Each structure stands twice: as structure tokens, then as C-alpha cells.
Lab assay of single mutants.
Amino acid sequence: KELVLALYDYQEKSPREVTMKKGDILTLLNSTNKDWWKVEVNGRQGFVPAAYVKKL
């Protein structure tokens, strides 16, 4: 599985998104969309802005 690092805090704005804190390590589930990547964090799956994370 591929991991990404949260570069910034992000507060979810819809049920399809997830909240993350700067420094969190997230599991990358899908990065086919250039703007929104699907990740898993704390057992929850959802989208975060691709610009807010970096592949490890």
C-alpha cells in the first residue's frame, strides 16, 4: 500500500471528505483525480485535496 504525508491541516467540508492534521501519515487509496485523492485515516475513508499531501 502507498502512504502519503499530510503537509497541512484539512477540515472536512462534506461527508465524502476526511479531516487530517499536518504530519499525519495516511493510506493512499486512489490518486487518479489530480485534485482530490482518496485516503484512509483513523479507519475512515474519504477525499483530501491532492495539494495537501505528498507521497512517501
Results as ranks from 00 to 15, higher is better:
residue 47 F to P: 00
residue 34 K to V: 11
residue 55 K to R: 14
residue 55 K to Y: 12
residue 5 L to Y: 12
residue 24 D to P: 00
residue 38 K to W: 15
residue 34 K to G: 11
residue 32 T to D: 15
residue 11 Q to D: 14
residue 54 K to E: 15
residue 40 E to N: 05
residue 21 K to L: 09
residue 7 L to R: 06
residue 32 T to E: 14
residue 39 V to D: 00
residue 41 V to N: 15
residue 6 A to R: 01
residue 53 V to W: 01
residue 48 V to D: 00
residue 2 E to T: 12
residue 1 K to M: 12
residue 14 S to W: 06
residue 25 I to K: 05
residue 39 V to W: 00
residue 31 S to A: 13
residue 32 T to K: 11
residue 14 S to L: 09
residue 52 Y to V: 09
residue 49 P to W: 03
residue 8 Y to S: 09
residue 25 I to A: 03
residue 22 K to A: 15
residue 34 K to D: 12
residue 14 S to Y: 07
residue 26 L to I: 09
residue 40 E to G: 06
residue 48 V to I: 09
residue 43 G to P: 03
residue 41 V to P: 00
residue 38 K to C: 13
residue 36 W to Q: 03
residue 15 P to E: 14
residue 6 A to G: 03
residue 32 T to V: 11
residue 11 Q to S: 12
residue 39 V to Q: 00
residue 13 K to H: 10
residue 15 P to G: 10
residue 49 P to T: 01
residue 32 T to H: 13
residue 13 K to P: 05
residue 44 R to W: 04
residue 24 D to A: 08
residue 26 L to S: 02
residue 19 T to H: 05
residue 9 D to I: 02
residue 52 Y to R: 08
residue 21 K to V: 09
residue 1 K to D: 09
residue 20 M to P: 00
residue 2 E to G: 12
residue 20 M to L: 10
residue 38 K to A: 09
residue 34 K to E: 12
residue 49 P to M: 03
residue 41 V to W: 08
residue 20 M to S: 01
residue 3 L to D: 04
residue 10 Y to I: 01
residue 33 N to R: 09
residue 46 G to P: 00
residue 40 E to D: 09
residue 33 N to L: 10
residue 22 K to D: 03
residue 2 E to D: 14
residue 40 E to H: 05
residue 44 R to D: 04
residue 42 N to A: 14
residue 8 Y to W: 11
residue 24 D to K: 03
residue 6 A to Y: 01
residue 22 K to W: 04
residue 27 T to V: 14
residue 9 D to C: 05
residue 13 K to C: 11
residue 28 L to C: 07
residue 47 F to N: 04
residue 35 D to Y: 15
residue 23 G to Q: 02
residue 29 L to N: 03
residue 43 G to C: 08
residue 31 S to I: 07
residue 8 Y to E: 11
residue 49 P to S: 02
residue 5 L to H: 05
residue 53 V to G: 01
residue 7 L to N: 03
residue 20 M to V: 12
residue 34 K to P: 15
residue 31 S to D: 15
residue 16 R to E: 13
residue 51 A to L: 11
residue 1 K to E: 12
residue 56 L to T: 07
residue 38 K to H: 14
residue 32 T to Q: 12
residue 24 D to F: 05
residue 54 K to N: 07
residue 23 G to F: 05
residue 44 R to M: 08
residue 45 Q to N: 08
residue 40 E to R: 06
residue 8 Y to D: 08
residue 54 K to F: 09
residue 39 V to I: 08
residue 33 N to A: 09
residue 25 I to N: 03
residue 16 R to P: 06
residue 12 E to Q: 13
residue 52 Y to I: 09
residue 21 K to W: 10
residue 35 D to P: 03
residue 45 Q to P: 07
residue 28 L to N: 01
residue 28 L to I: 05
residue 39 V to F: 01
residue 32 T to I: 09
residue 4 V to E: 00
residue 51 A to G: 12
residue 43 G to A: 07
residue 22 K to V: 08
residue 18 V to F: 10
residue 9 D to V: 02
residue 48 V to G: 00
residue 1 K to A: 14
residue 54 K to I: 15
residue 22 K to Q: 11
residue 30 N to M: 09
residue 23 G to V: 01
residue 8 Y to C: 13
residue 2 E to I: 13
residue 10 Y to N: 01
residue 44 R to F: 06
residue 17 E to W: 04
residue 50 A to N: 03
residue 48 V to E: 00
residue 32 T to N: 13
residue 50 A to Q: 07
residue 28 L to E: 01
residue 19 T to E: 04
residue 33 N to Y: 08
residue 19 T to M: 05
residue 29 L to H: 07
residue 30 N to P: 03
residue 46 G to L: 05
residue 4 V to A: 13
residue 55 K to A: 10
residue 49 P to E: 02
residue 34 K to T: 12
residue 25 I to G: 01
residue 4 V to G: 14
residue 45 Q to C: 10
residue 12 E to K: 13
residue 11 Q to W: 14
residue 47 F to K: 03
residue 26 L to M: 15
residue 21 K to D: 04
residue 52 Y to W: 07
residue 21 K to N: 09
residue 56 L to N: 04
residue 51 A to T: 13
residue 49 P to V: 01
residue 25 I to M: 07
residue 52 Y to N: 08
residue 54 K to P: 02
residue 27 T to P: 15
residue 56 L to Y: 09
residue 36 W to D: 02
residue 54 K to G: 10
residue 50 A to G: 05
residue 11 Q to A: 13
residue 4 V to R: 02
residue 19 T to D: 04
residue 9 D to M: 03
residue 25 I to Q: 05
residue 27 T to S: 09
residue 44 R to E: 07
residue 53 V to H: 00
residue 21 K to S: 11
residue 41 V to A: 13
residue 7 L to P: 00
residue 33 N to I: 06
residue 15 P to N: 11
residue 42 N to T: 07
residue 37 W to D: 01
residue 26 L to Q: 01
residue 36 W to F: 07
residue 1 K to W: 15
residue 25 I to F: 07
residue 10 Y to V: 01
residue 4 V to K: 01
residue 40 E to A: 09
residue 27 T to A: 11
residue 50 A to H: 04
residue 9 D to L: 02
residue 30 N to V: 09
residue 32 T to A: 14
residue 24 D to H: 05
residue 8 Y to H: 13
residue 49 P to D: 02
residue 26 L to G: 12
